[in-house]
Structure formats: structure tokens, C-alpha cells
Design a protein around this nucleic acid. Structure first.
Lengths: 145, 145
DNA sequence: TTGCTCCTCACGTCACGTGAGGTGGC
DNA sequence: TTGCTCCTCACGTCACGTGAGGTGGC
């Protein structure tokens, strides 16, 4: 692991394909954490981990078709589970509790998968429709030439 | 073909999965045509063809991830080509012109297919990610029980 | 007649876009 | 020092949501 290359908001926006305004907005509504301690007016600085987190959030945003508020809850739930796993590394909680948490996580994943698959089916339908149209047009083109 | 069952805006909204407000908005911005001649304050009435047109517009909206203004241009271009085809039924225009129109249509379809496939790849990526997560969680569940 | 859905403003909201005016780091 | 990117308001925009008050068809 090299020294964390501190990225500026414009760099981050460019690499993930969004705008600085969007990143600030996500910070404002609590979807992204505030970047470290920052004197008012000072530049925000990001790590590669921050970039990856933003990428993940954008994937979920586009793939699940969910509001940013719902997305926030979803990400918070994932974070909460990650915190629990960290705690479990020191000490041994009862495995019944562990199992309950894992079951809950599986439930959330199932919901997300349903959303993704639903959207995927709709896209498949549209793609099929478009290829059918294209085939018809190609046939007409052959007729005309 | 039976007598056109005149549908009200609420019926249309329910069958395609949207709201009356959205349908009125689409009419307002010119994405949907105004329903026949209508005294101010009178109810809007829709045919099955209108319903199918709305469905198509919603599919393109969700599948292409395009603004309603761009979508409007796109639909207008398709309508313009449909009108040309109608005209061609009466009379024989030069086939060079026909070929040019068909080529243009193929170009538009190609753009739309690119958009759909791009979004589909992103969804595939997210789905793969989610199934991987689920597999890991299922393994943990087996460990715990 | 009673509901129900419809109508037209018109303001509110979500997810940002877009300047306005100013400060800070290679 | 000169640009460039950054900063914080704050108003604008797109795609609708949501009442407010009223009319019209089974």
C-alpha cells in the first residue's frame, strides 16, 4: 500500500463519471461521509477507498432505480453490518445473533437482486424489440438496393 | 376490431403503471398528443392505441436513460418516418430517397441499441456483484448453523 | 342525489445544474 | 504572479407530487 494519493473533488468526479456538484450533494444529504476534518472553505480530499465507495453508490443508484433516501438507508444497513463484523474479530458473540444478522443481510441482498433483475428483464424486452425493428429495416434496405 | 373502449386517464395510468399527473405532464410537454378535441375542463379519453404508445414511451424512457426532451425528438423522428411510409403507399417516390430514410432509421436504432446495451452491461455487473455477495453470506450461514 | 373520478391552477420536491463572488494550492 | 480548481450561497431546472377548489359522467 503506497501513500494515499489525496484526490481533489474534480479528479474524483472525472474518474467516476459525475460532477463535483453531485458529490457535494451526496455529502450534504449524508449519502457520502464528510471528508475528514476540514476548515470551512478548505478543499475536500479523497482517497481511493472513497472513490470506490462512490462508484458502488452510483452503481446501486443506477441499477436499483431507488431514491437517494432509500439508497442511504440501504448503505447505512450495510455499514452497520460491517461494523458488527469488525467487533466480532475481538470477542465471540453468541452465534445465534450472528446468524440473525447474516439472515438479515441475505434478505436485503434478495430485495436488491429482485430490483436489478426486474430492470434487467425490462431492458431485455426493449433490446429484443429494437433488434426486431432493426431486422425489419435491414430487410427493407436489401429490397431497395 | 370492436368499438374503441374509451378509457379515462385513471384507467390508462393504472394499466401502464404510472399516474394521471405524469400522463398530463407528457401531454403538456408534447411527448403525448392532446386527446382529440376537448372542451376545456372536459375529460380526456384514450384508446388502446394510446395506451400502447404510452407503454412504448415508458419503456424507452426507462431503458435509454434519456431526458424527456431527447425522447420527444426520438419519437417525433419515428413518427415522421411512419408518415413517409404512409405517403409511399400512394405513389412511388424514388428509391434513393427511400433508401436514405431507411439508413437514417437504422442509425437511430443503432444509437438506441448502444444505450440499452450499455445499461444492460452495468446491470449485469451489479447483478454479478450481488450474487457474489450472496454466495459469501450463504457460506457464512452454513458455518454458523 | 351521492360518490367517484376528472379538471385546472399552482406551489412543493427531488436530484442535481449553473452562475456569482471569493479563497487557496501547484 | 498567473491560472486553475476549489469553496459557499442561492436561484434555476427537470420530472413529476400534492393539495385547493370546482365540474362532470355512471
Amino acid at each position: 500500500v503506497s501513500t494515499a494519493a489525496a484526490l481533489r473533488i474534480g479528479d474524483v468526479a472525472r474518474t467516476v463519471g459525475t460532477t463535483p456538484r453531485t458529490i457535494r450533494y451526496y455529502e450534504e444529504i449524508g449519502l457520502l461521509p464528510e471528508t475528514g476534518t476540514r476548515a470551512s472553505g478548505a478543499h475536500r480530499l479523497y482517497s481511493e477507498a472513497d472513490v470506490e465507495r462512490l462508484r458502488e453508490i452510483m452503481r446501486l443508484r443506477d441499477g436499483l432505480g431507488v431514491t437517494l433516501d432509500e439508497l442511504k438507508r440501504l448503505v447505512e444497513a450495510q455499514d452497520a453490518r460491517a461494523v458488527l463484523r469488525e467487533e466480532w474479530q475481538h470477542g465471540h458473540p453468541d452465534s445465534a445473533r450472528r446468524l440473525a444478522i447474516v439472515e438479515e443481510a441475505l434478505g436485503h441482498i434478495a430485495v436488491q437482486l429482485d430490483l436489478v433483475r426486474h430492470r434487467r428483464r425490462e431492458l431485455d424486452r426493449l433490446e429484443a424489440e429494437l433488434t426486431t425493428k432493426r431486422r425489419a429495416l435491414q430487410a427493407r434496405r436489401r429490397e431497395l438496393s
